[in-house]
C-alpha cells in the first residue's frame, strides 16, 4: 500500500532491474473509437447487435423445441432437435460473450494502469508481535524445559504412520509363481473361445483345423475356475495350421505341433495386447496396439515392432479321442517381460 499504486508514466521509468533495462509500458495509442464519434456509435450498434443475436438464439431454442419435436423416439428427429437446440444455445451464450468482449475492447477505456504488489515481508511491527506470540507459547508450554515430553511427542508422531505400511499387505498377495503358470497343463484340452460364457466347451479335433484356419482357443473348464478372465488373460492361444513344408521348425521343438498345427500365446510379449491379426498367406501375426509383427513360420520370432521376445509356443498333441490337448504348460512365461522373469529356470516340470 505505497504511493507506487496507480501510476503509469509511459516510457519514463527506465530503471535497471537485475541487469536488464525495464522498457516500461509501451506508448498508449488511442483507438478509432476513442477519436471518432461515428466509429463509437458503430461499435455500440455492433455490440447491441450481438446481444440481439443472443436473444434470437434464445428464442430459436424455444421455437425449435416445438418446431422439431421428437417423433416416437425416431433417431432422425432426436438428432435434428439436438442440432437445432444446440444451434440456439450456442448463439444465445456465445453472442453474449462476444458482445461483452467487444464492449471491453472498443468502448471501455483502455488506458494502461500499473498496480504494484505489496511487499512480501510483513511490517516490522507485525514481525515483532508474531515473535512475541511464539516466545510466549514456548514459555507457557515449557517445551524447552521438559525434554522428556518433547522427545516422546516426536517419537509418537514419527511411528504413527507405521500401521499404514502394514495394511499395504492387504493390497493383495504377492504374485508368487502366477506369472509363470497358466491353466494349461498335461492333457488339458483346447476349446474354442466362444466370446461369452459358453453352455459347454467345444473341443477341437485336429482334422477340423484345416490349412489356413485360425482358431481362438482357451483351456477347457476355464469358466469353472475362480477368476476366468484373469486366467484367460494368460492362457489365450491362437491355433493355426500351416503347410508343414513352410514351417522352419526348431529340432528341439519338433513335436510341439501336430502335422502343421501350431499353437501360440495370444498375449503380446510387449505390453500384453491380444496378438491375433493373422495373415494366413504371409503367416505374419500382427499386434494391433504397437504393430509388433511375429513370424509364425519361425516360432513367432519378432520381425517388426517393439516386442522383444517371441510369442511363447504351447506344445500340443492329440489325445485318444482325437481332440487337441496341451502337452504341458507354456515353457516360456507368457505376456510382457517382468523383473523376475529370469529368476526361474524354465526347464522344470
Amino acid at each position: 500500500m505505497t504511493s507506487k499504486q496507480h501510476t503509469a508514466e509511459h516510457g519514463s521509468q527506465l530503471e535497471q532491474v537485475n541487469g536488464f533495462t525495464n522498457p516500461g509500458i509501451p506508448e498508449h495509442k488511442p483507438r478509432v473509437t476513442d477519436s471518432s464519434p461515428a466509429a463509437e456509435r458503430m461499435a455500440e450498434r455492433q455490440i447491441a447487435g450481438w446481444f440481439i443475436l443472443s436473444m434470437i438464439g434464445t428464442l430459436w431454442f424455444i421455437v425449435s423445441y416445438f418446431l422439431f419435436p421428437i417423433e416416437d423416439g425416431s433417431m432422425g428427429s432426436i438428432r435434428l432437435q439436438n442440432a437445432m437446440l444446440g444451434l440456439g444455445a450456442t448463439l444465445a451464450l456465445f453472442s453474449i460473450g462476444v458482445g461483452i468482449v467487444l464492449w471491453a475492447k472498443t468502448l471501455i477505456t483502455d488506458v494502461e494502469v500499473v498496480e504494484s504488489r505489496h511487499d512480501i515481508a510483513g511490517s516490522e511491527e507485525d514481525q515483532a508481535i508474531a515473535l512475541e506470540i511464539i516466545n510466549q507459547a514456548k514459555e507457557e508450554s515449557g517445551i524447552a524445559r521438559r525434554p522428556l515430553l518433547r522427545n516422546t511427542l516426536i517419537a509418537a508422531v514419527a511411528i504413527a504412520p507405521l500401521p499404514a505400511l502394514l495394511v499395504f499387505r492387504d493390497l493383495g498377495p504377492l504374485p508368487g509363481d502366477s506369472l509363470f503358470k497358466t491353466l494349461w497343463g498335461p492333457g488339458v484340452r483346447l476349446v474354442q473361445d466362444p466370446g461369452m460364457v459358453p453352455h459347454e466347451d467345444r473341443y477341437i479335433r485336429a482334422e477340423d483345423v484345416t490349412i489356413g484356419s485360425a482358431f481362438h482357443v482357451i483351456p477347457e473348464k476355464m469358466y469353472e475356475s475362480e477368476h476366468p478372465l484373469n486366467e484367460k488373460a494368460k492362457a489365450a492361444v491362437l491355433l493355426m495350421r500351416i503347410d508343414p513344408q513352410e514351417l522352419n521348425t526348431d529340432p528341439a521343438k519338433e513335436d510341439w505341433g501336430v502335422d502343421g498345427i501350431v499353437a501360440y500365446s495370444k498375449i503380446c510379449t510387449h505390453v500384453g495386447c491380444p496378438v491375433a491379426l493373422y495373415e494366413h498367406q504371409t503367416h505374419h501375426l500382427l499386434c494391433p496396439c504397437h504393430q509388433s509383427t511375429f513370424d509364425v513360420t519361425n516360432h513367432c520370432a519378432v520381425i517388426f515392432g517393439p516386442a522383444k521376445r517371441p510369442l511363447p509356443q504351447l506344445p500340443i498333441a492329440v489325445d485318444d479321442e482325437g481332440y487337441l490337448v496341451a502337452q504341458r504348460d507354456f515353457v516360456d512365461p507368457v505376456g510382457p517381460t517382468f523383473w523376475e522373469i529370469n529368476t526361474r529356470e524354465t526347464s522344470e516340470q
Binding site: 484356419s213 485360425a214 495373415e279 494366413h280
Partner: peptide, 13 residues
C-alpha cells in the same frame, strides 16, 4: 473361404 490373407473359418470353427 478366407480370401486374401483372411484366415479360413470352416464349419467346425
Amino acid at each position: 473361404t478366407g480370401p486374401q490373407n483372411m484366415p479360413i473359418f470352416n464349419d467346425a470353427n
